[in-house]
Every structure is written in structure tokens, then in C-alpha cells.
């Protein structure tokens, strides 16, 4: 009802024919879509690479932060500072700083490819988020489980590996996937470095033709990835509720 009403309001508005032409032009869609799709593969590749790094780096940082070994205290402090810093700075700012700052240093052996630097910035930003998600999961596994694992004769490391982490990761799968949906969208931020990915190409197209349809085309491509991910998330969450 509400949606129908809104649709009616939009489609009968005086501006609708113009909006239809500038945002939903079939002609503009057809001409711009192949290039945008090409650019979108770069988004997907960057997303996959960053996701793998984030899953591993986030876990390592979470393990450092939850460890109680006194010897690790300095590294633990460093990990806490890292999480605070990289969660507290807007991702777009990090992409800028890494993409323009690092090449400006002119260090030998440090990559200057903006795609790599952008992935680096995204990885560091998202690892800080994901580390906190893992950390919450690890903390949610009761100490009694560690006691039982140790009593069974496992080493502390084995207790973590076979008893605590499997339970922790199972519990944080929904928030993890949620962060990955965010990441999939935030990959578009690398366009500020001039990288020719879907959003950037759509932006250039729309600015040269004064037609915004390419942006809609890019939006549809993002949705084509994020909506299935959201359904997987629903599925996992529902199953978790049944098990609990």
C-alpha cells in the first residue's frame, strides 16, 4: 500500500518524465553497461583479495588482543592502538592518505600502484572492524570450555584451535558477513584515486553525457552481489536461532 502510494506519487510527479530520461534511459544503459561491467570485475577482484586478507589479519589481531600472555603485552597494546586508530578514521580518508601519501614518500621497493595501495587501506580499515567482531566471539565462549579442553589434555593453543575458535567463529558469522556486505560497497571508495572501477566509470560516463543512468547501472551491479550475500546472512542467522 505505502509502496504503491509512493510509486504513484513519483510516477505522477511533474518532474518524472525528465527523471525517467536522465536516470532510467534504456539507450544510455545499453551503451554504458559493458564498460561498467568491466570495471565491476575489478571491484569484485579487489573485494575478494581484501576479504581474504581481512579474515586472516582480523583473526590474528583478535588473538593478540585476547591473549593473556604477559610477554605479549607490548604487541597487545599496539593492537589496541591500531584498532582504535583505523576504526576511528573514515575509510575514504585512509584511501586518500595511502593512495597519495605513500607514493609521495618515494620509498624504494614500496608499491606505488594505486590499486594495491587502495586494497592496503581497505584491508587495514576492515581488519580493525573484523578483529573486534572476532574478539567479541572469542569472549563469548565460556571459560568452562577452555577448562574442559585443558582437562582433556589439550595444550592451550590446541584448546583455542579446536574448542574456542570453532565456537567463536560460528557465533560471529552473521556480523562478519554484515561487515563484508559493507566492504563490497566500500570498494567503490577507491574511485577517489582515479581507479577505473564500476563507480568511477559510471561517474565519467554520466558526466560526459549528462545522463545519470550509468550510476543506476553501477548500483544494480552492487545489488547483484550484496543482495545474495544478505540472503545467505539471513539463512545463517535463522539456522543459528534454531540451533541455539
Amino acid at each position: 500500500m505505502v509502496i504503491g502510494g509512493l510509486a504513484a506519487l513519483i510516477f505522477t510527479s511533474t518532474g518524472w518524465p525528465d527523471v525517467k530520461e536522465t536516470f532510467f534511459s534504456a539507450q544510455a544503459f545499453r551503451t554504458s553497461f559493458p564498460d561498467i561491467l568491466d570495471g565491476f570485475w575489478l571491484d569484485v577482484k579487489m573485494f575478494l583479495a581484501v576479504e581474504v586478507i581481512v579474515l586472516i589479519l582480523g583473526l590474528v589481531i583478535a588473538l593478540i588482543r585476547t591473549s593473556r600472555l604477559p610477554a605479549l603485552f607490548p604487541i597487545r597494546l599496539l593492537a589496541a592502538v591500531y584498532c582504535d586508530l583505523f576504526r576511528g578514521v573514515p575509510v575514504i580518508l585512509l584511501v586518500y592518505l595511502f593512495g597519495f601519501g605513500i607514493p609521495a614518500l618515494q620509498l624504494a621497493g614500496v608499491p606505488t600502484d594505486p590499486i594495491i595501495l587502495a586494497c592496503f587501506a581497505l584491508s587495514l580499515a576492515y581488519s580493525a572492524y573484523v578483529a573486534e567482531v572476532y574478539r567479541a566471539g572469542i569472549a563469548s565462549v565460556h571459560q568452562a570450555q577452555t577448562d574442559a579442553a585443558l582437562a582433556t589434555g589439550l595444550t592451550p593453543l590446541q584448546a583455542l584451535r579446536f574448542v574456542v575458535l570453532p565456537q567463536a567463529i560460528r557465533r560471529v558469522r552473521p556480523p562478519l558477513l554484515n561487515d563484508f556486505i559493507s566492504l563490497q560497497k566500500d570498494v567503490a571508495l577507491v574511485s577517489v584515486l582515479g581507479i577505473q572501477e564500476a563507480f568511477r566509470i559510471a561517474q565519467i560516463d554520466s558526466q560526459s553525457t549528462f545522463n545519470y543512468t550509468p550510476l543506476i547501472a553501477a548500483a544494480l551491479l552492487y545489488l547483484a552481489v550484496t543482495i545474495p550475500m544478505a540472503r545467505v546472512l539471513d539463512h545463517i542467522t535463522a539456522r543459528g536461532e534454531v540451533n541455539a
Binding site: 570450555q145 582437562a151 582433556t152 589434555g153 589439550l154 590446541q158 579446536f162
Partner: peptide
């Protein structure tokens, strides 16, 4: 601890493993 066995008041079984996996974990890993 590998030479002792401990049974807890609240069982403390590993919920992500089957009964058999709970029993063999120590044998296999320890």
C-alpha cells in the same frame, strides 16, 4: 593433565562436536 581425568558439574561438553568427537578429541590431539 593427560594423566588425570576431570568431570565437571556442568558437563562442559564441546557443543560443536558429536558425542563421539567429544570422547576422542583428547586421544587424537593429545
Amino acid at each position: 593433565r593427560r594423566r588425570l581425568g576431570f568431570v565437571f558439574q556442568a558437563f562442559n561438553l564441546f557443543p560443536h562436536m558429536t558425542a563421539l568427537e567429544n570422547v576422542v578429541l583428547g586421544a587424537v590431539r593429545a
